[in-house]
Design a protein around this nucleic acid. Structure first.
Length: 345
DNA sequence: GACATTTGACCCAA
DNA sequence: TTGGGTCAAATGTC
């Protein structure tokens, strides 16, 4: 990236991003006019080209990475030698990009039950060091929302933040909205493992002792970037597996159930284990029109906070019930990337 | 003194 | 104009 100036680099990323957004808008618009397959295919290819270009630039493209990933923070802020020269520019850049950075931040939501130790004090430690920087009463909520940012924001330029809100219904449940990935090193020094981002999180245990009477419980995660809520969001659902006494990704659980001869509901196959949030499968587990497989998903808790914040609110893309081929490759990019549009609106 | 929390003010997108 | 998110000075804690 040395041959490309900071401004040129950012301008290039901006231009590509804008082009991508406009193309997506066009595609959305086209969908209201029943486009031909060829037209849609062409738009898919255009979007794919934009995405590849952003990836080549090391920006992360649709991976939903923030502008502060280790790779890009180096690129944006320049080398050590040029640091001083670029300081003023970077200050302005930081200021101007702050809003955009927040919008583009990778976001996911967790519902966490406070354990018996903490009681009503708050959710358990998630392994990261957070500094509270604000608290606010939100309209319609009984309890204030607390805002935390990474303690090492200034030292390591880590822009991860989280919002903690106590549930109105259950005092022991906290909705935690994580925004941005940690780029600090604290993950390597803490004994408690940090919360993995959804695309990496395969297993999540939350205080099993508090799940009495809830043999099948679920933790729902969702991730999105606000500017690209439909294409680049997904929900991964973790269900409590009573036979193994642990949480498993729904996909894993249903795989298991399928092997046991149980019915599989394809809507619930999550791409969470595909290793990338590039692929979208917004599974609306609460939709009454969707037939779920028995009790596996009956008690699923959904946390759609991030998607409701998106500019395209209420855009729930359902995967219609289909006869699932057990060998179908759900991790096929072509399937997940744009399939949601075919079921939207 | 260093660091964390509190809280009113401010900013900005819708 | 409003509400959510952030800032930053004041205050608290170790």
């Amino acid at each position: 990236m040395e041959s490309v100036g900071i401004w040129q680099y950012n301008t290039l990323v901006d231009e590509l991003t804008q082009g991508m957004e406009k193309t997506m808008q066009l595609r959305l618009h086209l969908w209201s006019t029943s486009p031909s397959e060829a037209q849609d295919l062409m738009l898919q290819k255009i979007l794919s080209s934009y995405d590849k270009a952003l990836l080549i630039l090391g920006w992360g493209g649709s991976n939903g990475e923030t502008l502060t990933t280790p790779e890009t923070s180096v690129s944006v802020h320049g080398s050590q030698r040029s640091e001083d020269l670029n300081k003023n520019i970077n200050d302005n850049q930081d200021y101007m990009n702050a809003s955009k950075r927040r919008k583009m931040q990778h976001t996911w939501t967790e519902k966490v039950k406070a354990d018996s130790k903490n009681g009503l004090e708050g959710p358990t430690d998630d392994g990261y060091s957070w500094r509270k920087y604000g608290q606010k009463y939100i309209l319609g909520a009984k309890y204030p929302r607390s805002y935390y940012r990474c303690t090492y924001r200034l030292v390591q330029n880590c822009w991860a933040t989280k919002q903690v809100q106590r549930s109105d219904d259950d005092l022991t449940v906290f909705d935690i909205i994580y925004k941005g990935k940690h780029t600090c090193n604290q993950c390597c020094t803490n004994t408690v493992p940090p919360p993995a981002s959804p695309e990496k999180q395969k297993l999540k245990l939350i205080d099993g002792q508090n799940l009495q009477g809830q043999q099948k419980q679920a933790l729902s995660l969702s991730a999105s970037t606000e500017e690209m809520p439909a294409l680049f969001s997904f929900q991964s659902t973790f269900a409590f597996h009573d036979e193994e006494n642990q949480y498993l990704p729904i996909s894993t659980l249903l795989d298991y159930k399928h092997q046991q001869g149980d019915t599989i509901s394809p809507q619930l196959i999550s791409p969470a284990t595909s290793g990338s949030n590039y692929f979208t499968a917004a599974t609306n587990v609460r939709n009454p029109n969707v037939q779920h497989s028995e009790a596996d998903t009956a008690d699923i808790i959904s946390a759609p906070a991030s998607t409701t914040n998106s500019p395209i609110q209420g855009m729930e893309f359902l995967i219609d019930p289909i006869n699932l081929d057990p060998n179908f490759a759900f991790n096929m990019p072509e399937f997940f990337t744009y399939s949601n549009f075919e079921h939207g609106q």
